[in-house]
Design a binder for these strands. Structure first.
Lengths: 223, 223
DNA sequence: CGCTCGATTGAGCCGCGTCAAAGTGCGTGG
DNA sequence: CCACGCACTTTGACGCGGCTCAATCGAGCG
């Protein structure tokens, strides 16, 4: 995190404490910060002195391939914890997908809690497991699915996370989706168009998706 | 795990205890078992009552895509711990790549140790982190690299894990490599042949790789 | 010696990336 | 309020890398 103190938004937000639930029965106090669209929250290689929780907006974690192309490893939505690293340094970067509010808590507090309270340690383990399963599922999608199937899987996953409703407001651009699914923006766009032609979804605007036929999407996802 | 007691190999191996180091200062007693090539160690959806550590041989963890194709998520070599799941059920299957010896330890013992000893809990967290980083790195490789680069990255990674030497005995078949890298056996084979033509490696036999020019491999890996 | 499984090699095709050009929405400034 | 500009999205044409299908080769084993 660069210039931690300087990036806190003006007004009464400074030092407004915010709760970070690490698990059942374990809630630690944090500080809320605002980040603008595309702003870096922390960078790869920096000291991992904080753990974060999305309050509003969305956050992406990214790494760069040796050829310079970026891979988005995960999207984090309100309620999600991110930046959790057992090591001393961040092994990836995090950026705000759109304007976002994030709650921070000092890493040292969490370590202390985990050292004294086994319930806290187990809560951390649970958060870690969740990320591991996400990463494994992601590897499976990237390895075994075609373009249309990846986009369908992405929409289904997102619709489950955001709400049980049929309408999704995408916080991220086509470029973000492409870098998450390891495709190009053109291919992602064509997949959306094709799904609209098949009446699986409707696209009132490019960032607003209406799931018309969930079954058709699930069929698409299955390759 | 099916028919746990019945699959223990004959002879004095039965109930021979084996140490499983979960971390610095935490070693638990386990039982050694033998598995034949391609034998299932545990299956997706089964109760995760044990944690495992490879003693000799190699183990693969796999999941199946909805279209029936398998994805190998990771290879585990002697010393590696696998089968660790915070949840009650295994979220993936494990099989012996070749004849292998595996040390088992009851999950309940580990949970007890983690609940009483924060050092043990941290050791578990470390093992989990290692797997998470592997999974993220794997996703990046699958998403951002071409065929030759994937195979080069695979060989480099394997050579670092097995030994610092220049010779690698592959425990796994081309089909295993293909399913790990999300390629076909033909493409993997062509990549090997090409690397031999480029004098980056030598192939005395299909399972024995000699790294001739590590720099060339690293150049290949970088896309 | 012959069988079988795994590995290699070749020919052809298809999906997705690349390059290029419109089209669309939104914020800014005149 | 409208005109403009910029960023994002969509659509099209084309090429290439890896998959498919198929044949051959090689090694271990009965």
């Amino acid at each position: 995190m660069r210039e931690l103190g300087m990036e806190i938004s003006g007004g009464p937000a400074r030092h407004v404490s915010d709760a970070i639930p690490l698990g059942p029965g374990l809630v630690l106090q944090g500080t809320r910060m605002r980040f603008k669209r595309n702003e870096e929250i922390f960078g790869e290689g920096e000291a991992a002195d904080y753990v974060y929780r999305v309050v509003t907006g969305a956050v992406r974690t990214i790494r760069f391939s040796s050829d310079g192309r970026r891979q988005i490893l995960s999207f984090h939505l309100p309620g999600d914890v991110f930046g959790l690293e057992p090591g001393a340094l961040h092994s990836l970067s995090a950026e705000a997908v759109c304007d976002a509010e994030v709650a921070l808590i000092r890493r040292s507090l969490i370590d202390t809690a985990a050292a004294q309270d086994t319930a806290a340690a187990n809560a951390l383990l649970g958060l870690m497991r969740r990320e591991l399963q996400n990463a494994q599922e992601h590897a499976l999608v990237l390895g075994r699915k075609g373009a249309g199937e990846r986009v369908a899987a992405f929409l289904l996953q997102l619709s489950e996370r955001v709400t049980a409703e049929r309408e999704i407001d995408l916080p991220m651009s086509r470029a973000d989706i492409a870098d998450y699914l390891a495709l190009t923006i053109e291919t992602v766009s064509r997949a959306f168009t094709q799904m609209e032609r098949d009446c699986a979804i409707a696209l009132p605007s490019s960032r607003h998706v209406v799931v018309r036929d969930r079954g058709a999407l699930q069929l698409l996802e299955a390759a």
